[in-house]
Design a protein around this nucleic acid. Sequence first.
DNA 1: TGGCATAAAGTTACCGTTAACGCAACGATC
DNA 2: GATCGTTGCGTTAACGGTAACTTTATGCCA
Lengths: 342, 342
Amino acid sequence: MTIELSDKVARNVPTLASIAERVGVSVNTVSRALRAPHTVRIELRRQINAAMEELNYVPNRLAGGLSGTRSDIVGVVVTSLYYSEFANIIDTLQSALLEHDLQVMLANTRYNADQELRLVRSILSWRPAAVAIIGVDHPPKVVELLKAADIPIIEMWDTGGEVIDTAVGFDHARVGAAQANHLIGQGYRRLAFVGSVRENDKRAQKRLSGLEAAAATAGLPDIVKHTAQQGGSPELGERLATELLERHPEIDAIACNSDVVAFGVLRALRKLGRRVPQDIGVVGFGDNEAASCVSPSLTTVRPDRERIGKLTAEAIVARINDAKSYTAPVEWELIVRESTVR
Amino acid sequence: MTIELSDKVARNVPTLASIAERVGVSVNTVSRALRAPHTVRIELRRQINAAMEELNYVPNRLAGGLSGTRSDIVGVVVTSLYYSEFANIIDTLQSALLEHDLQVMLANTRYNADQELRLVRSILSWRPAAVAIIGVDHPPKVVELLKAADIPIIEMWDTGGEVIDTAVGFDHARVGAAQANHLIGQGYRRLAFVGSVRENDKRAQKRLSGLEAAAATAGLPDIVKHTAQQGGSPELGERLATELLERHPEIDAIACNSDVVAFGVLRALRKLGRRVPQDIGVVGFGDNEAASCVSPSLTTVRPDRERIGKLTAEAIVARINDAKSYTAPVEWELIVRESTVR
DNA sequence: TGGCATAAAGTTACCGTTAACGCAACGATC
DNA sequence: GATCGTTGCGTTAACGGTAACTTTATGCCA
């Protein structure tokens, strides 16, 4: 479907020229009144500002961006918007960028590689000052495009891999290991992994690897995996846990790929009459706001999302100002609650 | 702080001219190969595409937008990103818009009116094809700017008030009334309202009004309000509920402004030894993904966010194509769970 | 074989803004 | 009083792309 603005004629938005004409100065003087106010007589400036106010003038940044060398868009590419996974990151990132007059342009790939390529291309076409993107694992063409764009690229959330430019995040394999070691420390022996693992969710796969490695190191039997491609939800968790325990009744601990899934797992266990944490331990990931409110309260891992947002903003500004690229590790914390302490 | 691109010289991103030169045709032919492929010889088109691929050419939409009459940005202004409040709306909206090659530019006002003005101005400066914004209550200057922009403006989430152009949402006062009537129907008599109500959260205020009106109609005593300006969270809910019951032990039902707050209220009641739903009923708003997973499970109101996103996208496309402005009512549902059924 | 429609490419102007440069008016300097 | 640096503004030329128009090549028909 093609989309066009209705009729060109009707649109009559004011330009610098409208202001200039009204005040009786050149276009450039009006531009200067905006960009370099001190170069314009205060009295004239007042007239110009009044005219702008009156006509509801809004600068055209398409033109500004094309003409000037600077851009104030920052492209932000996330893989999901559901369930607060990255919302807090975007939130802090955006408000931090606002202080530098940088505007966020958002894209959501929904864990789809084709979509990612398309969206990155689309964002780059706006000639952003920088791009922040979730993850360090991207299709080759995406990497190529991002590199060719010749702007700061900040990869967020994950640091375990090859970085294009600058990364702000943490090593997900270690998270998985921490989950496993905690469960093992509590005496659990037959571990399972449950959740929504999208094909392109490399972070989930890394956490699983960490989990498996730690279990192997401890001499435990292989971790039983039961995952699905569809998005995470309590309903999914409930289904997966039920199916899992039907096939593997020996399981005594379940690590979930997200808290939302863990909520459903807890519900399933309640229905099956398995006591948590006595019979089965459950650990989540993400520190959903409700994790402390379900019962039993959920042991989980809290990534410092606010800090990722903040550090990403800092990295963007630093890199725009020609600082060297770097990797900023971000803390995360295992929050131990009732669901794993027996 | 001023931000500039490092050194103009170093940047060497390919333009249509680079492609044209390489293939040995005019700039315009390359442009046509993109915009109107059938007007270019297939053999030549192939060469052009190859050159674009090779040089990693990405069209410059600043230039395109300035030159052409169309824009494919849709500005989306939300008041919050926390706790899935609007994340699902953005998610569906974005993927629906993607099918029409429309790109989302996101802004988050955090319930701040000054910020709203600033962000709307910033978004309009990109000459978007349309703007979607949360709520129908905006500062006068914002309304003026949006009207002057002469593009489709879709107000989402709320319909109870004066609409600029087109609205997609529901009447929040009726939600409040439904909450009250449900509680009353369950035999609760001393109602309270608890939660985070930001100064500019007109929707929360409307729900409260509906709640109060329904209580008054039923001949109940005035609703006790205990709110805070800070953002909603379980911790806030816990604190507010504790303080509330200290001062008003007679309260036997609490309506919360959001589910996240309700989660904290439930926790407070557990600590205080008040049984839910027997001693006190609790109703939330928003249908947080965990609402069915806390215990007792939470009675709440589920706004159809996916539908709002979808209908907003439809409205945008329709209005861009000159359809008349309208108001689309969106369904919501009272989900009755354990927390109010005694 | 001339005339004419059509296809395929080139030319030119313009979108709104900014940067570089130019120039007049004026006060300070020696 | 000629020189010079400021201040304050105007002029002009981009930025990269698109649309309207023009030109050239090609095929078809009478």
